[in-house]
Nucleic acid binder design. Sequence first.
DNA 1: TAAGATAGCGAGCGCTCGCTATCTAATACT
DNA 2: AGTATTAGATAGCGAGCGCTCGCTATCTTA
Lengths: 215, 215
Amino acid sequence: MQAAATRRTQAERREATTSKLLDATIGCLANLGYARTSVAAICASAGVSQGALFRHFATRRDVIVAAADAIGRQHIEQFDAAARGLKRDAYRRIVLLIRGLCRTPTHAAWREIMVAARTDTELRVQASQGLERFEAMLIATSGRFLGIDGKAAKRAAVVLLSIMHMFDSEAMTVVVFGNEPLETQRIKWATEMLKRELSELSPPLSPRVGGTARR
Amino acid sequence: MQAAATRRTQAERREATTSKLLDATIGCLANLGYARTSVAAICASAGVSQGALFRHFATRRDVIVAAADAIGRQHIEQFDAAARGLKRDAYRRIVLLIRGLCRTPTHAAWREIMVAARTDTELRVQASQGLERFEAMLIATSGRFLGIDGKAAKRAAVVLLSIMHMFDSEAMTVVVFGNEPLETQRIKWATEMLKRELSELSPPLSPRVGGTARR
DNA sequence: TAAGATAGCGAGCGCTCGCTATCTAATACT
DNA sequence: AGTATTAGATAGCGAGCGCTCGCTATCTTA
């Protein structure tokens, strides 16, 4: 009776193990950096053996690429979920959302992989698809969020992606040397800039959307 | 006669060796990334033995920190030299200058160290001074360049540093997945934005400066 | 010139790395 | 129940790591 309750299919076992490994890999990248994310560290964190890791992934690089894919998916979900709760004229909140996403451990793990991919051809080839998907998703989401398309959507995508780049690099350097007054001013500036851009690009908020009436 | 010509002081020998080592370290960081910048790789590139490296630097980390300092100094010189040749209303050229500096191998080496410093406490403590100096220099240079100070100078610094962050992160991701149309649009947008900001912040170009008359 | 200090070398150390081989455990199928 | 397949663990491998060591070469000082 109890033995049957704990019996899992092979597929379930596989899913559980690879899931643990991917979570552990992301955690190690975030906490230890790329260089120190060894197979031993991943397995210690995941609570599985190295043999099990190599059962499911051919090489260390393969598990890291799989982790990059998982991060990309998480990013897309997080971004979608967060955008859903936002009014489009909540400029400051949009800026803070983007900034906040750049400062997560998951994003730090992503950045570790991207930096490592610069000098590792195999990793780069495999990581590029994930990055491409992430960018495409951001572009699509911004269009949907603003209710625009065509040239205006392209412009908005440039702005939003550029703001993300800005906060990405800021997040990277802030760990080494923080400068709070400057960071605060940057939020303020980015907000003004986003307001100006989105006000020019978007169709007016109509009563049908309920935006104006809500206020 | 000839033997005397090739005789170097201990100080000269030291300077030559450490110089080679620092150049090699920067090159290895740029070409191989942080993880693969081993002591063996540095020494092979510098053409000196590991024993010589450890004569001058206590640890691998020490030589990397020294390289970070050297990069910081180079950055400051490059930026200063480039700013000297610029008119302040050459907005597009300023944008392209910043973008270009973010795409140098030296800057890539810098980024490798910054990313590694996130998860290496010792490295971080030592690298933070270099980053602080670099930021302070940028802030001072932008004020001088624009002929402004006080609040306006602070604002300009936020803008310029933010543009640098933006192109820094772009430079990082572009290696993995480039998107030329989007990059072109970003230059255009950054230029418009910079024009708007600097026009509002700067005192008028006076004949004494020769800016207006030159045109 | 001899003694002392500094620079630099190459071999070897102990350790960690990614990975493989072998064995055991769990599930699936007949 | 017995056999086949998949999943996972443990031990061990060879390569590479950062660093130390004993030594030689070169410069400086007395």
